[in-house]
Nucleic acid binder design. Structure first.
Lengths: 114, 114
DNA sequence: GCCACGGATGAAGATTTCTTCAAGTCGTCA
DNA sequence: TGACGACTTGAAGAAATCTTCATCCGTGGC
């Protein structure tokens, strides 16, 4: 292992670690979109969205191309969509597990714990 | 969409966004391990490792069980390993793309850009 | 009981990341 | 050319995360 590989991975995940950026990536799963549309669907000020788009651009997760008046964003590779799907799977599993645990605890009479 | 789903996803990725935590998860891919071993492989102070382990525990990515003298950690679900693999694929692709772009730029005579 | 060892926890200062605001660029239309 | 719309950028204060240090808990040996 060369060395700062864990660093790179951590940075990668951190760029995914923001609600607005996640939303953008999910919207882009269905195809390229102009900023204007992203802005319409995500409740955030234009400059803030722009900042987050800049982060995604820096890490090469998306590409931006100017088309006349507007700027269109797209996923740079379909793998990104796949990663999001994998994450969604884990997340739902973790959440349902939690839920199951919760109901189990309740079923067992709600004895206190911790 | 209920609402704070993007929030949850973002938090999930953020917990992956730390070199030590990534290393821990990767080490646990090969099976459960006592803290002592993790400590031997990751260069970090005990209390710091403990902090990061606490983060992973809170998000249910790992489980800890005491075995006599030591504490053993394990992935809470094999899906975590799968996610890491997916991430690794994307990451290597992004990096090789970058590399390809770079060599292409060099081959084209190193004309300045931007 | 007492002490040492393996870890966990709490708190505080240092860093990093977010949000927001003001100003700037680039294309279009008149 | 000038003005406007669509974004982007830079900077600064606010907020979250990291690292580290001191302290604490549980287990086993003496």
């Amino acid at each position: 292992m060369p060395v700062p590989l864990y660093q790179a991975k951590a940075e990668f995940f951190r760029t995914l670690g923001h609600p607005v950026r996640i939303r953008v990536l999910e919207l882009l799963q269905d195809g390229p979109r102009p900023v204007r549309e992203l802005l319409a669907e995500i409740e955030v000020e234009p400059s803030n969205l722009s900042q987050q788009l800049a982060v995604l651009r820096r890490t090469q997760l998306v590409t931006a191309t100017r088309e006349g008046n507007t700027v269109v964003y797209a996923l740079s590779t379909p793998d990104v969509a796949e990663l999001l799907r994998a994450a969604r799977r884990i997340l739902t599993e973790l959440i349902t597990d939690q839920g199951a645990l919760l109901t189990e605890l309740r079923a067992s009479g709600g004895r206190s714990h911790r």
